[in-house]
Design a protein around this nucleic acid. Structure first.
Length: 899
DNA sequence: GCAAGGTC
């Protein structure tokens, strides 16, 4: 193997290694052995590798992911090992900020755009973790999963660890393992190779193609149709080379059902009485679609009236035991037999795995490694009363090796790891666990054997038969009873025997359409056509549900919605390729050329993108044809929604479109104004924005702690002030300074100096938690409160007040806004039953004692803690006015840093 | 607000 001869063996001569270590910048004295960093794709594999190589003698410390350390030999030399992992891909691709604004970017330009890699999970700090752990390491060994994605992650890890490129041949190694077993891990250590750049580049190619094609079509479709119709009921009209063909399968079945024309058919069913039982025979012609012809045959048979047995045959048949359980098959069973969706099934499986009840649930393999301990696994199941008898019999009579399945080189099939009961797991997890146990026992059971008897008859020139089945070995079917053979006993017949026909029925039936595609059938289709992977299939199915293209019906049947049907019919009449599974195979085929080193990465990407760009241009040109279908199904924006607030430009009422994405639509100006999502919207007392005359709306987030705030539809979409860097309800905004529609500036971020609703007027003091400002929730009566305009900090004000407002006064001590409280007559804390009180919530003794900080999920009473003397800092860093600190001139509402 | 692929 040329690849393997590149590097030496585990037992290399010390001399060669010494030279290498010197090159790597280490002296070879025993006091500081060279360090070897090893990186796996996930924490569980890092643990397995470290356990094997250290014989369990390692020390483990926490980091972004765990790091296992031990001493051992590397290339025949003493070395210090550090084994850690990433968590899947470190990076994912995206467009640069300048392409993030939907309104400022022509989707066509996306095909030529550059792409950037950003950290997939910024909070995990994997990149930093790797670079820190790599410091001082002389060697890097890549233990990523042995598939293309894993090869790509190898290069992500190399990028983070910054091993010098020109020395990488001597210092960076790839471990190729076909399973996470001691044998394979040691073998991989002895046969270190180089990472495969071609395969990694193929993944880069796929990422760029998927991103550009998906985003370009999605943005165009979404903008086009949402700008025209008000009841599409999906936030985004997405397109993707996996999700769209997935939807295509569902709609194809729907169309089959819809265009189905039932046909009447007729079948001859002769009956005989044999040894006292009536038996119905099957017709060799099965059925005919012409009643006259069928009746003619009936006449022939009836007139003859005597059947002759022309053949009796017996055949030994066998139904094979299952091979090992992989993810896709688990998902199919979960959906069809247990009623769990793929996403749910995976969640349950993950939990069973992390709790140690089953082996790793994400695997493509149905073949077991040769070293697999079947006996041990069986023994672990023997105490469960549900199947202990069966297990004992298997152990006593000898279990079978499972059928050879396919070995994808990833993980062994999904198997039980330790015993469990329904009480421990809960019903849902138990049912899945139970299936995994039954399946495993099935794989090591005998095949099911049965005898199939066929008796053939002739009468009046027509042929009939009956079939009997007799099980001789139940085998695996006794533990998986739903797969058992239906037994059917036949009376004895002998060849040449003549039997009287007791009656001849002319059965009239009607062909019926198929049912909606079941989720389990869909998974099979996706697997067959290479749409998605075991891990992403559930995501794609979930996607088309969430986007409201299909609905899951009882029995997990997938019924496409009007939107889903209209989309697919649209592609079919413009460019059917767009929704066919071949679109994925085309991409896969192209990038395989890169993986094999037969084609240049960037040339392939350019070539494929060029083709998709043409398709995109044609699609845009022909969109009217698709629009004709939408027009027939959906209502124009103008007819949708109810009048809610007045437009500041034409002063006519705009309509509120409640279907997501919720938005306002001005029919006169033909403008759409997006609103914050996932909350309720109301008119705000017919107040208007001083900047543009639009009537203000009030938005309330759901839940008892959901904040409410006013917003101007126009300002929210087109912030009028420069330099508002924190926006609400928007996702990514470019650093371009230009803000597009849906940019997200509610009044609580507006710096307008005189408007009653701006942060200047409603802001009370700086947030104790972040750089934001606490603003008064104007509609929070009677549970008055302040909330931060940046984070989720919440401050509860005196309860039961009639009215709380901000004033234009500032506290002389801390510069906070003075608030005015109109207490309830009955519950007022003021002397003499007075109700009106003004003061600073930080410095006024009364108010201070009545407020309470409620911050996210945690409670902190450091703020205004009851019974605490003022001026004595308690709790979190003494939240008690500023003043004493430097920077007194800074507006406290803009910065609370000093507190 | 967008894709698909990892893993948690």
């Amino acid at each position: 193997d040329p690849e393997e001869s590149e590097v030496g063996s585990w037992e290399n001569s010390a001399k060669k290694v010494e030279v290498e270590i010197e090159k790597a910048g280490f002296n070879s004295n025993m006091s500081s052995p060279p360090k070897v960093l090893m990186v796996a794709e996930k924490p569980s594999i890092a643990l397995s590798i470290a356990s094997v190589l250290s014989h369990g003698q390692m020390s483990t410390r926490r980091g972004s992911t765990e790091v296992h350390e031990f001493n051992g030999k590397f290339l025949g030399f003493h070395a210090h090992y550090k084994v850690t992992s990433v968590i899947g891909h470190v990076f994912s691709v995206d467009f640069p900020a300048s392409y993030q604004d939907w309104n400022a970017t022509n989707p066509l330009d996306l095909f030529q755009a550059s792409v950037i890699k950003t950290e997939s999970n910024p909070k995990a700090h994997i990149s930093r973790h790797l670079s820190q752990e790599a410091r001082g390491c002389g060697y890097l060994v890549l233990w990523l999963d042995c598939d293309r994605e894993g090869e790509n992650i190898c290069f992500e890890v190399m990028e983070c660890t910054r091993f010098p490129v020109n020395e990488s041949k001597k210092r960076v190694y790839r471990a190729r393992f076909s399973s996470v077993t001691e044998k394979d891990i040691l073998k991989a250590m002895d046969n270190l190779v180089e990472p495969n750049r071609h395969e990694a580049l193929a993944v880069d190619a796929r990422q760029e193609i998927d991103l550009k094609v998906g985003v370009a079509f999605t943005r165009f479709q979404t903008s086009y149709f949402q700008g025209k119709y008000g009841n599409l009921d999906s936030r985004v009209i997405s397109y993707g080379p996996c999700q769209t063909p997935t939807l295509g399968f569902c709609v194809q079945r729907y169309l089959q059902i819809n265009t189905f024309k039932p046909e009447k058919f007729w079948a001859l069913r002769p009956y005989i009485i044999q040894t006292g039982y009536e038996l119905q025979l099957e017709w060799k012609r099965q059925k005919l679609f012409d009643v006259d012809v069928a009746m003619m045959f009936q006449k022939l048979v009836t007139e003859d009236g005597i059947l002759e047995v022309i053949d009796v045959s017996e055949k030994q048949e066998s139904k094979g035991r299952p091979s090992g359980l992989n993810t896709v098959n688990l998902l199919k069973v979960a959906s069809s037999a247990l009623g769990y969706g793929p996403q749910t099934a995976m969640q349950i499986a993950e939990r069973l795995y992390t709790q140690g009840f089953i082996s790793y649930p994400r695997t493509e393999s149905t073949a077991y490694p040769s070293s697999f301990d079947f006996k041990g696994t069986l023994k672990s199941l023997e105490n469960n009363p549900l199947w202990s008898g069966y297990v004992h019999r298997l152990l006593a009579e000898g279990y079978h090796k499972p059928r050879t399945g396919t070995d994808a080189g990833d993980h062994p099939p999904i198997t039980p790891m330790r015993p469990a009961t329904e009480d421990i797991l809960g019903n849902d997890a138990w049912r899945l666990y139970q299936y995994i146990c039954q399946h495993f026992m099935g794989t090591v059971s005998p095949d099911c054997k049965y005898v199939r008897t066929k008796v053939e008859f002739s009468v009046g020139g027509e042929f009939f038969h009956c079939i009997g089945q007799r099980v001789t070995v139940q085998g695996f079917a006794s533990i998986m009873p739903w797969l058992a053979i239906n037994e059917k006993n036949l009376p004895q017949f002998t060849k040449g025997e003549k039997i009287e026909v007791s009656r001849v029925e002319l059965y009239e039936g009607e062909t019926s359409p198929p049912d909606y595609l079941s989720e389990s059938e869909l998974i099979s289709l996706m697997e067959k056509h290479g749409i998605g992977t075991d891990a992403s299939i559930p995501v794609h199915i979930n996607n088309i549900c969430e986007r409201n293209y299909v609905q899951v019906q009882a029995g997990r049947k997938l019924a496409p919605t009007t939107l889903g049907i209209t989309l697919i019919r649209g592609y079919q009449c413009i460019d059917p390729d767009l929704c066919l599974p071949d679109i994925r195979s085309f991409i896969e085929h192209q990038i395989t050329l890169v993986a094999k080193g037969q084609a240049d990465h960037s040339r392939v990407v350019q070539h494929v993108l060029q083709q998709f760009k043409q398709k995109f241009t044609y699609f845009v040109q022909q969109i009217d044809n698709m629009d004709a279908l939408f027009e027939a199904q959906f209502s124009p924006l103008a007819d949708t929604g109810r009048a809610l607030s007045k437009c500041g430009k034409c002063l006519r009422y705009m309509k509120y479109v409640s279907q997501q994405p919720q938005r306002m639509f001005c029919g006169t100006c033909e403008e759409v104004y997006y609103l914050p999502q996932k909350g309720t919207i109301k008119l705000y007392k017919e107040l208007t924005c001083p900047l543009d005359n639009f009537e203000l709306l009030i938005f309330s987030m759901p839940g008892p702690e959901g904040k409410s705030f006013p917003l101007c539809p126009y300002c929210y979409n087109s912030p009028p002030f420069e330099g508002i860097d924190t926006l609400f309800g928007s996702t990514k905004t470019g650093s371009t300074g230009k803000l597009g529609k849906g940019a997200g500036m509610p009044c609580f971020l507006c710096p307008h100096p005189t408007c009653r609703h701006s942060v200047v007027a409603q802001g009370v003091c700086a947030c104790p938690e972040c750089s934001g400002t606490l603003v008064l929730d104007p509609v929070s009566a009677p549970k008055w409160r302040l909330y931060c305009n940046k984070c989720n900090c919440l401050v509860l004000l005196p309860e039961g007040a009639h009215r709380i407002t901000t004033t234009r006064e500032r506290c002389t001590e801390c510069d906070s806004t003075i608030i005015e409280v109109d207490f309830n007559k009955k519950t007022t804390p003021l002397e003499g039953g007075a109700t009106l009180h003004t003061g600073c919530i930080l410095c006024d003794e009364l108010l201070h004692s009545l407020v309470e900080v409620k911050h996210g999920k945690s409670f902190s009473r450091g703020f205004g803690a009851r019974g605490r003397g003022r001026g004595r800092g308690t709790g979190r860093g003494g939240f008690r006015g500023r003043g004493r600190a430097a920077g007194r001139k800074v507006d406290p509402r803009m910065s609370f840093r000093d507190f």
